[in-house]
Simulated assay, not measured.
Amino acid sequence: MKVLEKMNKVELEEKLAQGNYVLFFTAAWCPDCTFIKPAMPELEAEYADYEFFLVDRDDNIELCQDLMIMGIPSFVVYRDGKEAGRFVNKQRKTKQQIQEFLNDIK
């Protein structure tokens, strides 16, 4: 999974202008993020039509604020530069919950 460099919302939308993306918002200190990280390679393989980016909340705090990411781990899907869906809250997420979220986007 690629790591998203530090950027603002305008830069993000330009970077994601074409294609399908899943942004995985996380932080090294977050136990619920650590819980789901082992499942991420499987999710990337299962949803190969999306490019996945890991977004470190601490490196991109302003971006998280602009996108209203108030809890982690969280997931936001972009299609051609526009937000297509979000799974954002402070609760632990399972692989099955993320699959259900991504299936609902398709």
Rank of each mutant, 00 (worst) to 15 (best):
E100N: 11
D58V: 00
L12P: 10
F25C: 09
C64A: 15
N103T: 00
M40Q: 04
T26E: 13
E5F: 06
D58P: 00
N8H: 04
M68E: 11
N8Q: 03
D49H: 01
K82P: 00
D49E: 11
I69W: 00
C33Q: 10
V76C: 03
N60H: 06
Y47H: 05
Y47S: 10
D80Y: 00
I98P: 06
G81C: 05
G81R: 00
E14P: 04
T34Q: 15
K37S: 14
R57E: 14
Y47K: 06
S74V: 01
E44K: 03
Q65D: 10
F53M: 07
K9T: 06
E13W: 02
D66R: 03
D80F: 01
Q96Y: 03
G19P: 13
R86S: 10
K82W: 00
L102E: 12
Q65H: 09
M68P: 00
R86V: 01
N60C: 05
R86A: 12
A84H: 05
M68R: 08
G71R: 04
E51Q: 13
D32V: 10
M1V: 09
K2S: 09
V3G: 02
L63A: 07
E83Y: 00
N20H: 12
L4K: 09
D66F: 00
L4D: 04
R92K: 14
R92A: 11
G71Y: 02
L23G: 07
D66G: 03
P73L: 01
I72Y: 05
R79W: 00
M7K: 12
K90T: 14
